[in-house]
Simulated assay, not measured.
Amino acid sequence: MLYYQELGSKGKEIVIIHGLFGSSDNWLTIGRALADEYKVYLIDQRNHGKSFHSSEWTYEAMAKDLHEFIEAKNLQNPTLLGHSMGGKTAMYYACNYFPSKIEKLIVADIAPKSYPLHHQHILEGLQAIDLQKLTSRKEAEEILSLYVKEDSTKAFLLKNLYREGEKWAWRINLAVIAEQIANVGEGLHTNLTFDEPTLFVRGEKSHYILDEDFELIRYYFPKAIIETIAEAGHWLHAEKPQAFLEVVKNFLKS
C-alpha cells in the first residue's frame, strides 16, 4: 500500500495527492490547517516519497493505487484533492472508480488535457548528479544549478535526495520517471464523467489552466466551478497558502 501521513481525528475525510517530483511532505502545511475540521490523509504516489518503486508508471496504475488505499482504509465518501500530476490521478480515479463513493473533487492547477514535455531540463539536472561520487548536498545543488535557476525549485527537487548509510539516494524513481515522463502529460482519455461537486483552482500566473480549457473541464466535470488565486503560479498552495485554503474551505463547506 502507498505510504501516507494521517492528520486530524474527526470530521469528513480528505485525501491529498501531490504532484511530480513531490511527496506528502509538501502538503503538511495545508494538511495541518485542514486537520482541525477534517481527517486528512497525505499520500506518496508510486515512485515518489516513501512509497514503493515500480516500472509501471501510468495514471491508470496511480489511480489503482489510490483505489486500493481508499479501500484498505475503508474511507467513506472522501474528498480528493490533487495537485498537478496528483490532480490528474484524482481526475482519472473520479471518472473511472465508482464516482458515487467520492463526495467532492478538488483539482489544483491542472486541466484534463494533454501537455507537451517540459521537464527535460529538470531531469537532465537530476541525472547529472552522480550519486556514487557525490560528497555533499551543497555539491548536488551546485550541479543542479547548471540546469535549474530558481532557488525554490532547486530546494523542492533536492528534498528527494537523502543519505542511505554512507551512500546518497533518490526517493523518486528517477530512472523510470525519466524514461516514462511522457505519461505525465497525457490527457484524460475516457468517455466517463464525474457528476459530483468539483473545484478547479488555478494560479493567475500559471499557464496550466487556460480560459480555453474551461469547456473541456466542464465536459468531464459538469458541476465544476473554477477559481483563480491572484498572484499565484503553479505552486499556488505553497505560494499563497491562505488564499488557497480559503477557496478550498469554502468549497468543502458549500
Rank of each mutant, 00 (worst) to 15 (best):
32 R>A: 13
237 H>G: 01
94 A>F: 14
16 I>E: 03
96 N>K: 13
225 I>A: 04
195 D>F: 03
178 A>F: 02
86 G>C: 08
30 I>T: 15
70 I>K: 04
207 H>C: 01
159 K>G: 13
252 L>P: 07
59 Y>C: 01
219 Y>H: 11
2 L>I: 13
3 Y>D: 07
35 A>M: 04
135 T>G: 04
20 L>V: 08
118 H>A: 03
184 V>C: 04
156 F>L: 04
114 S>H: 15
180 Q>C: 01
25 D>H: 11
214 F>R: 07
60 E>F: 07
240 K>T: 09
27 W>C: 11
251 F>N: 13
212 E>Y: 13
76 Q>I: 14
184 V>G: 01
157 L>K: 15
166 E>K: 15
251 F>D: 12
146 L>T: 10
173 N>R: 12
198 T>I: 05
194 F>P: 08
213 D>Y: 08
91 M>W: 11
8 G>P: 05
84 S>H: 05
103 E>K: 10
115 Y>A: 01
2 L>N: 13
14 I>D: 02
162 Y>E: 09
149 K>V: 12
128 A>Q: 09
91 M>V: 15
159 K>L: 02
71 E>T: 13
229 I>N: 04
17 I>Q: 03
155 A>K: 15
31 G>V: 15
169 A>G: 09
65 D>M: 08
73 K>Y: 14
223 K>Y: 08
41 Y>C: 02
36 D>C: 14
215 E>W: 00
118 H>N: 00
227 E>P: 01
178 A>G: 10
183 N>H: 03
39 K>P: 10
155 A>I: 12
5 Q>L: 06
126 L>Y: 04
89 T>P: 09
33 A>V: 12
173 N>W: 00
243 A>W: 04
170 W>L: 03
136 S>L: 12
24 S>W: 00
76 Q>S: 10
130 D>N: 12
162 Y>H: 13
171 R>I: 10
132 Q>L: 11
214 F>L: 05
240 K>E: 10
231 E>I: 06
154 K>F: 02
184 V>R: 01
130 D>F: 04
224 A>V: 11
247 V>E: 05
183 N>L: 00
53 H>N: 11
41 Y>F: 12
138 K>M: 07
34 L>I: 02
175 A>I: 12
136 S>M: 13
183 N>I: 00
199 L>S: 12
244 F>D: 09
238 A>S: 05
126 L>P: 02
185 G>K: 05
41 Y>W: 09
181 I>T: 02
227 E>I: 02
128 A>V: 13
153 T>C: 01
186 E>T: 05
123 L>G: 14
67 H>P: 12
44 D>S: 06
162 Y>S: 08
235 W>R: 01
206 S>W: 02
51 S>W: 08
122 I>Y: 08
172 I>Y: 00
59 Y>M: 02
251 F>T: 10
13 E>V: 05
43 I>F: 01
163 R>G: 05
200 F>H: 01
200 F>I: 01
